[in-house]
């Protein structure tokens, strides 16, 4: 994966002013995705993974305060998405064009008033062609490619005519119809049954091989991430706390949170009946977050006086492996400088 980065997120901060304080949805998130690569973004609810995706598309809530850079590298030059007007024409070209997104609940992403075909054609007309007939044939072709049977008929159906799995396929067809370079998939299979999830995941891998787009795959499910991602970034409380390629992450996690998570999830093949090693405590809410490691209050390896007074930076702790934890001298060194 030595390709040039397609998108680079640098020090992204999204602050949401709420009645009882400022919620730091993402707090200094940095990562990059290369052409054709799949980055898995894993974390629990409220960790900021969805807000990160929404920031790339500039669809975060209007009152959110965003700083940092999101650099989109194209042949024609580099664009900083954060600097764009969220309602201007430039972002509209990127949104649904270069970057497309699929959501957890496909029913709410389609308008119930228009046929599937109309909505896909609209996306094609915006980004690819001006010709209605051509747009329709592209749409039919896309529906066929995502495995929808009888695409020429299905194109004139309404979203509620389709089953959950078929709707998610249609959603993918719509997202891919503009030939995006980056596909953001926000928990796309969470609402689906496992047997259907297997179908959709295979479809996404096949389409990636075919179209060569990069995928930012967001999920809370380590099984799905292990299956889909090339590289993984683990988020906790608004920050990326560990990032490396998928094999290293699952074979030798470095951050205590990732390690604890791996031990806590039930998995087939683990000796059954054996107690799970639960992580104590609750996921904190990042409102008026102190300057400390977010995991400090639940961490089995917490070092009082270190972890609760400074925030660890994400540093290289092993080849191709970054972690944000003071257990590693590299991180301590970076903090002292």
């Amino acid at each position: 994966m030595a390709c040039a980065p397609l998108i680079e997120v640098r020090n992204l901060r999204v602050a949401l002013p709420l009645e009882n304080g400022v919620l730091m949805a993402t707090d200094g998130v940095s990562f990059s995705i290369a052409e054709g690569e799949t980055l898995g973004l894993v974390g629990e609810s409220g960790c900021g993974k969805t807000m990160t995706a929404q920031s790339i598309m500039r669809i975060a809530p209007r009152f959110a305060h965003t700083t940092g850079q999101i650099l989109l590298h194209e042949a024609g030059g580099t664009t900083d998405i954060v600097a764009l007007d969220p309602r201007g024409p430039a972002i509209r070209k990127i949104r649904g064009g270069v970057c497309a997104m699929i959501f957890q609940e496909p029913m709410s992403s389609f308008s119930p008033l228009h046929t599937i075909g109309n909505q896909i054609e609209e996306a094609i007309l915006l980004h690819r062609t001006q010709d209605r007939a051509e747009a329709r044939s592209i749409a039919i072709d896309m529906l066929g490619r995502v495995g929808i049977p009888r695409p020429a008929e299905t194109i004139d159906k309404y979203p509620h005519h389709l089953s959950g799995g078929m709707r998610q396929r249609a959603m993918i067809a719509m997202a891919l119809s503009s030939q995006p370079r980056l596909l953001i998939a926000d928990e796309p299979t969470t609402a689906l049954d496992v047997t259907v999830q297997a179908q959709v995941l295979r479809l996404m891998r096949e389409l990636q091989d075919e179209f060569g787009m990069a995928i930012l795959y967001i999920s809370h499910d380590l099984g799905v991430i292990a299956h889909m991602a090339d590289r993984v970034a683990v988020m906790y409380l608004g920050s990326i706390i560990e990032t490396t390629d998928v094999r290293r992450l699952f074979s030798a996690p470095r951050h205590p949170y990732t390690q604890a998570l791996m031990r806590a999830i039930p998995r087939i093949g683990k000796r059954s009946g054996e107690r799970l090693e639960a992580i104590a405590g609750n996921v904190p809410i990042p409102i008026n977050k102190p300057r400390a490691c977010g995991f400090a209050n639940r961490c089995p390896a917490v070092m009082p006086g270190v972890c609760d007074v400074r925030r660890p930076a994400l540093e290289v702790v092993a080849p191709e492996h970054r972690a944000a934890c003071f257990l590693y001298p590299e991180v301590v060194e970076a903090a002292d400088v």
């Binding site: 709420l18 009882n20 919620l23 949805a25 409220g46 807000m51 809410i285 409102i287």
Partner: peptide, 12 residues
């Protein structure tokens, strides 16, 4: 956002 909103319920 919904999961986030519910977990943000004012404590107390």
């Amino acid at each position: 956002m919904t999961a986030l909103a519910t977990s943000m319920a004012p404590a107390g």
